[in-house]
Nucleic acid binder design. Structure first.
Length: 544
DNA sequence: CGCGTTTGACCCGCGC
DNA sequence: GCGCGGGTCAAACGCG
């Protein structure tokens, strides 16, 4: 029984590993050092894929800043999720962790007991070695079964907690989003990172330490450690004013434990923070040639989305077309920062900065600025949607494997499902969604729901079918989508990323789940689009 | 030849 | 006022 469950869990986990690894060409197994396998925990040795999505929504105006951390990864997923979730849920997160530890101890005790009992029985039947051996075997098996039972229990608990925590996070997020609707002069900054490297995670963690404190409860020390090695899907929001931001930068840079490497932090901070001083923004807007839409400009200028992704390629595939217009070496980071402009639409004000993380060169920090004044390419949109699904799927896989009988016991309430459904329906073109939706609703909990909400919004924009005809990208990604746009020189979602996809989108959906780059890119695209369009829309959407 | 990248120069904001 | 640093421009260059 429990043994069978256990097996199933392992299988699922392994499968997920495979998918992740296969999909991400740039994934570095070595970097994702397998965590020390804790007793009674999921086998993680084979789960090197780490993905951490950190989203920071910065509404500069009111100084509010939201940071969303979203970590996903197989075995690690749970760990990371637990962590982030725990953080999110100030109230019950703490005891949850403790409970787990306690369980572990319990398991050990029980096992011991079993072992001791077995020998005793054997002594009684000294004449029959056969019997004795059989009994020994039996006891051993029982022992194992007990162990497995405990493990299952624990896993179930973890999952439940994760789900619950996500809900809380979602609630908080929703609350936050409702607040600032009236504060215009805000800068929206989304920080999103995907990757599992310790440094990345560390940075994210460190970064969020302060601002996130409000949203997420502190994470246990051991969690912190785990966080570095584990992958996870975490989401956090934070808000801060320009000043706050600047201050934060300083703090981050000085924070010793944040990331041993100040340079890295710095790069991170620089990208994320802004150089978005109002005046600069003005220039930017003017330079962008978007004077036609003054009202939107303000919003555009304020929108920033940072994405950190483990990527070997020069840039991340985000489904848009970019043209490089500059490169500069920023102080504190030897890696040059590249400046790109969106060329999908002639006057699209969106720009992005790409810079490698000094600490971990495999990490690409991409900062999107502005809002697309055009629908996103199908690829981007689809990717965004699939990303959502992918995230859900990823999570689901884990959950399914560990909560086979738990039935996602902590399963999100119907409300959550309905919350997501709108989007899912809109973008259900991909069968992937259908399969993912249940996952999402079940496992993604708050974070997932939130994402979906945003994605739904974005999809709403770009999903408008015919509008795509005006743009270079093919209406149906599955048919010639890979042909790319702009003359088909390259896949429209391929801007040089190592993992440039060469398959049609529907297939991509599957790939995306396993490809951190695409996954993150899609998320970034979706978020940037959504947030860019304007947080209000998102907020209002949320109301739905 | 067209398009995108490279790269040095320039502009502007900010801190001292 | 000056220097520093980030961001942008635009001519030169390379590639298909």
């Amino acid at each position: 029984m429990s043994s069978s469950k256990r097996k199933r869990a392992d299988i699922d986990l392994e499968r997920r590993d495979d998918e992740v690894d296969d999909g991400s060409g740039d994934h570095h197994p070595g970097e994702a050092a397998p965590r020390v396998q804790k007793e009674g925990q999921i086998k993680e040795g084979e789960a090197p894929a780490k993905e951490v999505v950190e989203v920071v929504v910065d509404r500069g105006g009111d100084g509010s800043k939201e940071e969303i951390k979203y970590g996903t990864q197989q075995g690690g997923v749970i760990e990371e999720d637990k962590k982030s979730a725990a953080a999110a849920a100030d109230n019950d997160a703490g005891d949850g962790i403790d409970d787990e530890e306690g369980d572990g101890g319990g398991t050990g005790a029980e096992d011991k007991h079993m072992v001791e009992a077995a020998p005793g029985d054997g002594d009684g039947d000294g004449d029959h070695e056969h019997t004795a051996m059989a009994q020994d075997e039996l006891s051993t098996m029982q022992e194992e079964m007990e162990k497995m039972k405990e493990e299952n229990k624990m896993l179930r608990r973890v999952v439940d907690r994760t789900v619950r925590d996500y809900y809380e996070l979602q609630t908080k997020l929703a609350a936050y989003q409702k607040q600032p609707a009236d504060q215009e002069p805000k800068e929206t900054e989304v920080f999103l990172s995907l990757g599992g490297t310790a440094p990345a995670a560390a940075v994210a963690e460190a970064k969020s330490k302060e601002e996130q404190a409000a949203l997420r409860p502190s994470v246990g020390s051991d969690d912190t450690d785990d966080g570095r090695e584990g992958l996870g899907l975490s989401l956090s929001l934070r808000t801060s004013s320009y000043e706050d931001e600047a201050r934060r930068d300083v703090v981050d840079g000085g924070a010793p434990d944040i990331v041993t490497d100040v340079g890295k932090v710095r790069g991170y901070a620089l990208l994320e923070s802004s150089r978005m001083s109002p005046p600069a923004s003005g220039d930017l807007a003017a330079g962008g040639g978007i004077g036609s839409q003054q009202g939107v400009n303000a919003a555009n200028r304020k929108t920033r989305v940072s994405v950190r992704v483990r990527c070997q390629g020069p840039t991340m595939n985000d489904g848009c077309q970019w043209r490089k217009y500059g490169q500069k070496v920023a102080k504190g980071n030897p890696c040059p920062r590249a400046y790109y402009r969106c060329t999908v639409a002639p006057a699209c004000p969106v720009r992005k900065q790409v810079q490698r993380c000094q600490e971990d060169m495999s990490i690409l920090i991409t900062t999107y600025e502005g809002t697309h004044n055009h629908p996103l390419p199908v690829g981007a949109t689809a990717m965004a949607s699939t990303a959502t699904a992918g995230a859900g799927a990823a999570t689901f896989m884990l959950l399914s494997s560990t909560t086979s009988d738990a039935a996602v016991s902590g399963g999100p309430p119907p409300a959550s499902s309905s919350y997501l459904s709108p989007y899912l329906q809109l973008n259900s073109s991909s069968k992937y969604h259908s399969s993912a939706s249940p996952l999402m609703s079940g496992s993604m909990g708050g974070g997932g729901a939130q994402h979906l909400s945003m994605f739904g919004h974005s999809s709403g924009l770009s999903a408008q079918p015919a509008t795509h005809l005006k743009y270079p990208w093919p209406p149906n990604p599955s048919h010639g989508g890979a042909a790319g746009l702009g003359g088909g020189k390259r896949p429209f979602w391929g801007t040089g990323g190592v993992d440039d996809v060469t398959t049609a989108l529907p297939d991509n959906a599957g790939t995306m789940v396993s490809d951190p780059n695409q996954f993150s890119a899609a998320i970034a695209t979706a978020i940037s689009n959504v947030i860019g369009k304007d947080g209000q829309a998102t907020r209002s959407k949320e109301g739905e």
